[in-house]
């Protein structure tokens, strides 16, 4: 969702720095994802969320920075670590949490679960469970933009693990060949499940992965929401202006396991703690806001309080909401 306060001056996405209101919104949106995910982890531990549950904790700056750089009408598609993406799209945390608990009030009526959430209303195209499959799908949404000449850009997220999938390169090829308005965002959180980048990737600089197809790329500090926003804005401008596809590699980090059932033997606690201490996207950005006198500690605490309330309500709602009716078993198979 684009913040109108960003788009002042002589046109969209040209103002060099976001307003203080926008910066506070960044903080708010990141913290909402953080608190939401912490609570989701808790509900999983209580057995209220089942199956696979991939938390986004640590990566919040990526989706918040990018989402705020989009214009109305732009579309987003991602893989299964999608809670942050649907929240950043502006969907109600209640409906999101209720999907995680498999309730009728969930955004997929409880039929999709954590990995399969969608919002046609917000141009959020999911939420896809097969590693890499969302990349050609997103390229196809961008194809439709070009077909309709609607000026929209599609944001196709993938993890760095997915970036080794063949279909990603088939997509890069077609996107450049047909000059499709698609921006590929590689969320490089350093681990594809339990396999570190260096153990799986012959070319670990993912922003270079489009070179063979003439798709330009750029590396971005994915722990810095302002850097993400700026890079996203420029890249979107490039793509929207007819430059063809582009790749942004977001260097980020996930604190939690790949999913809730990840024993995390592949890295040390110290590694995680060290990143948290030095690079946490929310803590660091909060400090910046205070240093620049754009917010006080009290302001930040107030935001935290509001968010805790929202998340508590979402959790209560998701626990109390009824499961789908048995008759729902056979609906929504065909139109």
């Amino acid at each position: 969702m684009s913040d109108p306060s960003v788009a002042e001056g002589d046109g969209v996405n040209t103002r060099p720095t976001p307003s203080s209101a926008t910066l506070k919104k960044f903080y708010h949106d990141m913290l909402l994802i953080r608190r939401f995910e912490e609570r989701a982890g808790q509900l999983y531990g209580m057995g209220l969320i089942g199956g696979f549950c991939h938390l986004y904790i640590g990566q919040e700056a990526v989706v918040v920075g990018m989402q705020n750089a989009l214009l109305p009408g732009d579309q987003v598609i991602t893989a299964y670590r999608d809670h942050g993406h649907i929240l950043a799209s502006g969907m109600d945390p209640k409906g999101v949490m209720a999907e995680l608990t498999g309730r009728a009030a969930g955004y997929s009526k409880g039929k999709g679960g954590s990995m399969h959430m969608f919002s046609v209303e917000k141009n959020f195209f999911g939420g896809h469970g097969i590693v890499g499959a969302q990349v050609p799908l997103g390229t196809g949404i961008a194809f439709a933009n070009k077909y309709r000449e609607n000026g929209a850009v599609t944001l196709a997220y993938m993890g760095e693990g997915a970036a080794n999938q063949g279909q990603v390169y088939e997509s890069f090829n077609m996107a450049e060949l047909w000059h499709l308005p698609v921006l590929y965002v590689v969320e490089n959180n350093q681990y594809a499940m339990g396999t570190s980048v260096e153990r799986a990737s012959a070319q670990p600089k993912f922003y270079k992965r489009g070179e063979s197809f003439n798709v330009p790329g750029e590396e971005v500090d994915g722990m810095d929401v302002e850097a993400v926003f700026e890079a996203g804005r420029k890249a979107l401008e490039f793509v929207r202006g007819g430059g063809g596809p582009m790749i942004l590699e977001m260097k980020t980090y996930r604190y939690r396991g790949h999913s809730m059932s990840d024993p995390a033997k592949y890295r040390t606690r110290d590694e995680v703690q060290s990143i948290r201490d030095r690079k946490d996207p929310i803590d660091q950005f909060g400090k910046k806001l205070v240093d620049r006198e754009l917010a006080s500690d009290v302001d930040l605490k107030t935001i935290d309080k509001e968010i805790r309330l929202i998340v508590n309500e979402a959790a209560e709602f998701a626990i109390e909401a009824p499961e789908p009716e048995a008759s729902e078993l056979y609906t929504d198979v065909l139109a």
Binding site: G140, A144, E170, S171
Partner: peptide
């Protein structure tokens, strides 16, 4: 299309979603 069934099928499905 290029000879890339996996990719262009996914692209077609995405265009259908849109």
């Amino acid at each position: 299309t290029p000879i890339t069934e996996h990719g262009f099928t996914g692209l077609g499905v995405g265009a259908g979603f849109a």
